[in-house]
Every structure is written in C-alpha cells, then in structure tokens.
C-alpha cells in the first residue's frame, strides 16, 4: 500500500460501497488494485462490502505462493482487512461450488450466500466498484 499513511477522512456521509470481485488473481492486475480501493474506503469510514463472484472466489483461496512468479501475494492484505473493520465479505455459493471449493478453502472468514441473495446485495448498494 503506497497510501498506507493516509489519514482517515470524515465527510459526514456514509454510503454503502460494494467491491465486486469477479476476476482471478495474478493473471491481470484488477484484483490487486481493488484491494487498494477497499483499504482507502475504510479510511473514509464508509460501509464497505466485498463480494466474490465467478473467478473472484480464487482471490481468497488458501495456499497461494507467488515466490516463483515474483508477484505480490494478496493473502497478507486480505488477512489485514479485519484490522480495518472490514468484515462484510460475501462469497457466492454457486461460483464457489462450480470451482470445486468449499467455505473451508478461504483465508478469511466469509459469509456464503446464494446467487439470488448476491443479486439483492448488489441491488442495495450505493456505489459498486470492481466488476
């Protein structure tokens, strides 16, 4: 995080932010830079939600070791989210099961919800980023 020293910003407005993660890690940069947005929105004291849908569920799969590809691993940042009071993490059940994963395969505590509930969650947000 290059902006790790940013102070918290009080705007007096709290919006529901959703970071919709649908991309696998490492193959493209999208997942990594979404995490940077997540951390900054916590500094703005917004109501932050993270959703893992489609290949996004791979982002939090246990056991990632990026040493040989020389890329930055995501896992330490995900583990740090709790410290920023970011605890609303949702995994889509259908996406998880299609990929042969279970709720025990993730590095952080998540709530597993079905596609209809995910649709309702998205529908209830003020700002949706990622995608």
């Amino acid at each position: 995080m290059s902006q790790g020293d940013e102070p918290s910003f009080e705007t007096g407005v709290v919006k529901k932010f959703l970071y919709l993660n649908r991309k696998a890690p490492y193959g493209t940069v999208y997942a990594l830079e979404v995490l940077e947005m997540v951390l900054i929105s916590a500094a703005f004291e917004q109501d932050v939600h993270l959703a893992f849908v489609d290949d996004g569920v791979y982002q939090i799969r246990k056991g990632q070791d990026t040493k040989s590809v020389e890329m930055k691993s995501f896992l330490p940042t995900y583990r740090a989210l709790e410290g920023y009071d970011i605890e609303k993490l949702y995994v889509e059940k259908e996406s998880m099961e299609e990929r042969g994963l279970t709720s025990g395969d993730f590095v952080v505590p998540v709530e597993v919800i079905d596609r209809a509930a995910m649709g309702s969650l998205i529908d209830s947000m003020d700002v949706v980023l990622g995608g």
């Binding site: 902006q3 940013e6 910003f9 705007t11 407005v13 919006k15 932010f17 940077e36 947005m37 900054i40 929105s41 500094a43 703005f44 917004q46 003020d126 700002v127 949706v128 980023l129 995608g131």
Partner: peptide, 20 residues
C-alpha cells in the same frame, strides 16, 4: 493525487460510472 480522490468522488457524486 491519491486513491482517496476516487472514494471521495463516490461519496460526493450522485452516481459513480465506471468504464473498464
């Protein structure tokens, strides 16, 4: 400027529209 400017835009705008 910092990424905070994006979050602030999300807070202060009525709609945030993303192109990517």
């Amino acid at each position: 400027s910092g990424l905070g400017q994006l979050i602030e835009a999300g807070i202060q705008s009525d709609r945030l529209v993303m192109f990517g």
